[in-house]
Amino acid sequence: MNILVCIKQVPESNKVEVDPKTGVLKRNGAASKMNPYDLYALETAMRLKEELGGEVSVITMGPPQAAQVIREAYAMGADHGTLISDRRFGGADVLATSYTLAQGIKKMGDFDLILCGKQTTDGDTAQVGPEISEWLGIPSVSNVRKITEADGQNITVEMDMPDDIEITRIAYPCLLAVDKDIFQPRLPSYVRKTEKADTEITMLSLDDMDDRDETHYGLNGSPTQVQKIFPPETNHHRELWNEESSILSEKLFQKVKELKFV
């Protein structure tokens, strides 16, 4: 079984603020970590490997320092890692990012199963996984909350829907985006980290890809454009209602209705 996990380095803290006057993003410190949702994908991969044998690879796209998350994946049990890094990939939106990753994946070889986390904590789109599967022409299932069966040919999973659970069998090769809490992720191991200290990380740049047309990558390959960023309105609103019970219950009903809970 050949498994690939897509991972991403994200800021350690989501505490970003926009200066309301200048519109400049203010970040509290530059520390980064592996996207927490990717830990679940990585854990899923490790469990499948333990059950079915094979190898687990990871791929990430980012600046050179993103190699850190590949090292972390090694400490959690990954066997191989690839970092896609090139200034010309900068400014990529979902389409360009997924295209770049798909190009990189093609260079890495054939995989039976590609696993992604539900979403990242910085972009929050949950779209890169499904778009990768389109570029690779393989089926995908998102919101996987449980794997009920897996063998050499197929994998059966539970897809979490708003009111139902869809039980689906998919033939390899395929891509799954797993939900938080599918498994409790293991911690990185010091022993493994030491053992893998000399394991290389494969580096890929635009020049290594099959498609070297610059207009397909980075800002040029991105249909969406960010016009501006601004701080959200915060809910500091407070109201105190001191009235008859009948009025209170009516106001409560209207409020809950307005908030769309009935």
């Binding site: 970003v16 904590t121 249909p223």
Partner: peptide, 12 residues
């Protein structure tokens, strides 16, 4: 984006 800490205005 960023867990709701900023808002982004996007066009295609």
């Amino acid at each position: 984006a960023f867990g709701g800490n900023i808002m982004a205005h996007i066009t295609t």
